[in-house]
Design a protein around this nucleic acid. Structure first.
Lengths: 233, 233
DNA sequence: CGTCTGCTTGAGGGCCTTCAAAAACCGTGG
DNA sequence: CCACGGTTTTTGAAGGCCCTCAAGCAGACG
């Protein structure tokens, strides 16, 4: 079974005393009676699968540096729909907003990250752990990714969207011919602006064209990476 | 082919004498045959309609602060199509990339902007004209706008997309009940991930619903701003 | 073994795209 | 002032793709 190497997130194996299913808002509030919320220095924290890291409307008084796991950044839109704006991976710094947040961040699978206090650009100066240079670089990378995402969303065809998405996921994990997806079909659908069904059909279509092989739902072999990349022209 | 008939902006079109009336001429550019392109301090420059400010693949060795006019930021994709990722307005700072640029910037209409030299985050320190604080704020705003754009692109309906777009354009120019569009239908279409025809039909649909009044193609009266905003729920 | 969740597949309808053409707009020149 | 050519915008008709609703299937877990 190739699926053996995939570890579906298990709720029980979380470090610390984190509650399951993330029905509550913020871990930090519940983990301990009243922990020192954020020290002057970044604090390492752990989140259970589906736990909420921050929500739309919250004040943006801290930012985050992802150590391990995948974080979904999304906005709710009408009729229960939602738009996933970005997937964050290890090393990414995120959570900057001018004023209050306009999107929510949630853990997909177990997540570890550094929490840093921040009250605005004026507070971003020397001596902080992620340096101003690193923050600038990350913000710029952020912008680049979001522009790339706009290109994805503007595409007409569902198959094109998925092909490019898979290429990007592969290159992001440093490989060229296979991908281990950190998110489910619904997350992908909301990221690509499609429905779950359309995403599933796109997967099947790519497999029929012999461009990929669906080893399991989460593990994809790219049988023709060049052809997949070519959708991005 | 919708976007096939776009003429790629011509690089030679930097302003000297081509400025339409009503705009101050560029003294510095006319004073010397080949002015020092970028000084240590920001240099004010003028661009003619459709002039290119930077292109995909260029090294990102400078950034820009827009003084007046509208700038279109776009990426070329396959089959002559393109995706507009953002419209920049007065005061916006743009053009940051890690390494080489992944999108092009073009002037829509006459544009004046400050050009600032920049070779990476390490060079962004005190004493620059746009301060590090301002740059951080602008980058964050950039991210917020791009996230908002993703929400727009993810929308199912063309009418929804246009309604939200018009609301945003209005609030961006500080008004609530009318908009003067700085771009044509094709630009809007490529921004919203639609065709010109669909955009035009969406305009007509909104007018039939009595939500807007098309005074001229570029000048729109919002007859029911609240209803338009409600599409953004 | 049965339930639950997530993924896939099928059929029908709606919306956008495509192709085509008319209408409105604009600067130019008679 | 009006006529004229090119561009931009609008409108129409037909087709394709995605969405919706619905059911079947597979994997995980007790």
């Amino acid at each position: 079974m190739t699926t053996a190497n995939i570890q579906p997130p298990k709720i029980g194996q979380m470090i610390g005393s984190v509650m399951p299913m993330g029905l509550e808002t913020d871990q930090t509030a519940n983990a301990k009676p009243s922990p020192p919320l954020i020290a002057r220095n970044p604090a390492l924290r752990h989140f259970a699968p589906n736990a909420s890291i921050y929500r739309e409307g919250d004040m943006a008084d801290r930012y985050y540096k992802l150590v391990s796991g995948t974080v979904r950044d999304s906005r709710h839109i009408s009729h229960g729909r939602r738009q996933v704006t970005e997937f964050h991976g290890s090393g990414d710094i995120f959570g900057f907003y001018n004023g209050s947040r306009i999107s929510s961040a949630d853990a997909i699978g177990p997540v570890s990250l550094l929490v840093c206090r921040w009250h605005g650009p004026h507070e971003t100066d020397m001596g902080m752990h992620p340096s101003t240079n690193e923050i600038l670089t990350q913000l710029i990378r952020h912008v680049e990714r979001l522009q790339q995402h706009a290109v994805l969303l503007g595409r007409r065809s569902a198959v094109e969207k998925l092909a490019i998405f898979l290429s990007q996921q592969a290159s992001r994990m440093g490989t060229t011919d296979w991908v281990l997806l950190g998110m489910n079909r619904l997350d992908i659908a909301d990221y690509l602006g499609l429905t779950v069904e359309s995403v599933s059909r796109a997967f099947s279509s790519l497999e029929r064209q012999d461009l990929i092989e669906i080893i399991s739902a989460r593990e994809i072999k790219l049988k023709n990476p060049a052809a997949l990349m070519r959708f991005d022209t």
